[in-house]
Design a binder for these strands. Structure first.
Lengths: 230, 230
DNA sequence: CTCATGTTGGAACAGCGCTCCATTCATGTC
DNA sequence: GACATGAATGGAGCGCTGTTCCAACATGAG
């Protein structure tokens, strides 16, 4: 009557883009990227695939929405007030942990740079570099290098997850690759040989952070006035 | 069994993995990643899809072989004898140019880290860092940061290529993204706003190299004794 | 009531990677 | 020369995918 009706719920559990994205994330997290099909999604939501297309343009649209969802949560959960350098490390680690928990996000980020999440990530890194005192003409290159590092690790992480999805042990999996590397001709691959031993026991998260620190070190070295060493 | 089919005579241009990979690369280069199907490949080779499977395990195997082919050519074409830092830049640029010319290689590298090409790339970067005097315990992190940068840019490049594959103008495409970025709320995205203007006119190759230089700067800053500045 | 509108669900379609298998031909054996 | 063997071939067919299409439905408006 006088009350302006909201979208009337035809089913008590009405379909909506939010509900669809939520269900998609559940499937992606529990059963992996390959398990997200419109049929599986329709079954999960007790509907037909046609109904889903009323709310979602196509699969890319769905994956983009799911990815933006996860990234937006990361950005919202960031602690504020830290000094620039620490804030950059926290941001990078937050992204790493989200991608580690949802490897499919890594796949999306590394192959869909037009995602709405990308300018958010750009802004977060870039504004911290500004605070750090990096001169304006150097900010674009510095920011994109940090972003590329995150996206690069995201892609590799997702690929690793895809590979040992069915395996039980992650260390065992890295051990197999290490063994392959160790079998290469030592005279042509001396460095790979030396590094193979470190492969099974290395920590992806620490190595990721070491990369961030190297890049930050390079930025500070290129602009010595920008900030004191920490 | 009424009709006895006339079979084609045994081909003089025998099928082989090399010939198949070669044909696959042609299709990938000329018509893009989406165009490589076993049916298209069979048509291109004037055979059936079943025959291809005699020489190739599956599509991943085929793509891996094609990727390794391209990367191996890059490694073979590297100029020798340069000083370590210049050699690293030349290697990085060689990889960038190959990925730029064959965007599908970027897709493969960024999503299949178990490729035979990866230890080759690792070795090339790592041994140069050794020459540069980077201490042994720091070589793994430094090398992987360089490799991640290459793979990260590879993935983004491939994604961009996928996106404006049918478009004529690359600058126009970047202009569209820049416009999207410029339409974001300036109070929440001040940095993205400033950078949007640089987006259409920036050079991917130079930015890639700037990233390599930042990382190298960080490596040298972390190990001051390792080498003189160049 | 009768519409019109906005949703739903599932059948149908084209295309994919891949398997299967009857068939062909180069080669080795006698 | 006749035959057996098995590598190599080519195409039909399977199960799956994303996507489209459309008949059926629920609800608010007149």
């Amino acid at each position: 009557m006088a009350i302006k009706k909201q979208r009337a719920a035809r089913r008590t559990d009405a379909l909506s883009k939010e509900r669809i994205v939520e269900a998609a994330i559940e499937i992606l997290d529990s059963d992996g990227e390959g398990a997200l099909t419109f049929r599986a999604l329709a079954a999960h939501l007790a509907t037909g695939s046609g109904a889903i297309y009323w709310h979602v343009a196509n699969k890319d649209d769905l994956l983009a929405a799911a990815t933006n969802d996860v990234i937006a949560r990361v950005m919202a959960d960031l602690p504020g007030g830290a000094r620039p350098r620490e804030a950059i490390r926290a941001l990078a680690l937050g992204l790493f942990d989200a991608i580690d928990a949802h490897p499919w996000v890594g796949t999306q980020l590394s192959r869909a740079p037009w995602l709405a999440a990308i300018p958010q990530i750009f802004e977060a890194f870039g504004s911290r570099l500004e605070e750090l005192g990096v001169p304006e003409e150097a900010q674009f290159d510095a920011t994109s290098t940090l972003v590329i590092h995150v996206l690069g690790v995201a892609g590799q992480n997702a690929a690793n997850a895809r590979l040992h999805a069915h395996r039980t042990d992650r260390t065992a999996f890295l051990g197999e690759i290490a063994q392959q590397w160790a079998q290469l001709d030592p005279s042509r691959y001396p460095f790979v040989h030396r590094v193979a031993a470190q492969l099974p026991e290395h920590d992806d998260r620490e190595q990721f952070l070491a990369g961030i620190d190297l890049i930050l070190g390079g930025i500070e070295a290129a602009h010595p006035g920008s900030s004191r060493r920490t």
